[in-house]
């Protein structure tokens, strides 16, 4: 049984500029687990997809906040929950099919869940129409070649 070592909770307004904010705060939090460049890139991409889904689909016709909950466990498992109180998803199975999108006119590829499933170890979606959606993603950090702090600073500059 793994033990929780740290937790972060961030509330974001559903504005598209906050997609980058979500990636930045998750990157800062995840750095404690010494991920590799590839693992960090996977996590950032998955978080970006989940937050974008909340903005584009969840809050398409209403507004509210997006909650980003991140936990690190002592076995270096990362738990990330992205939840909104938006319109919800009537058919989660269909929504998770590759190329399914409710916004084709915006050139949405419909690959958000496919990316999350491919880049994380597990993805669970809980949704109630009219009440909101939670996406829970887990990934165990296995890297023995962590991102050097200096390298990350250069990348972000």
């Amino acid at each position: 049984m793994s033990r929780k070592e740290n937790e972060m909770r961030v509330i974001l307004a559903p504005k598209s500029c906050n997609e980058a904010v979500a990636r930045s705060v998750v990157t800062a939090f995840v750095m404690q687990t010494d991920p590799s460049v590839s693992e960090l890139s996977d996590i950032k991409t998955a978080v970006s997809e989940a937050v974008t889904n909340s903005i584009v689909h969840g809050y398409r016709s209403c507004t509210g906040n997006i909650e980003l909950l991140c936990r690190i466990f002592d076995d270096k498992t990362l738990y990330i929950r992205v939840s909104d109180k938006g319109c919800g998803i009537a058919d989660v199975k269909k929504a998770m099919e590759p190329l399914f999108t409710t916004a084709p006119e915006e050139e949405r590829a419909g690959l958000g869940f496919a990316v999350m499933e491919s880049f994380m170890d597990s993805v669970q979606v809980r949704s109630t129409p009219g009440k909101g959606t939670s996406v829970i993603m887990k990934k165990r950090i296995l890297s023995k070649t962590p991102v050097r702090t200096g390298a990350l600073e250069n990348e972000c500059s």
């Binding site: 990636r23 950032k44 991409t45 050139e107 949405r108």
Partner: peptide, 14 residues
């Protein structure tokens, strides 16, 4: 390019 998610796929496909 330092980061791209599936929005970039939509961009390329378009």
């Amino acid at each position: 390019v330092t980061f791209m998610d599936s929005s970039g796929i939509g961009l390329v496909m378009g």
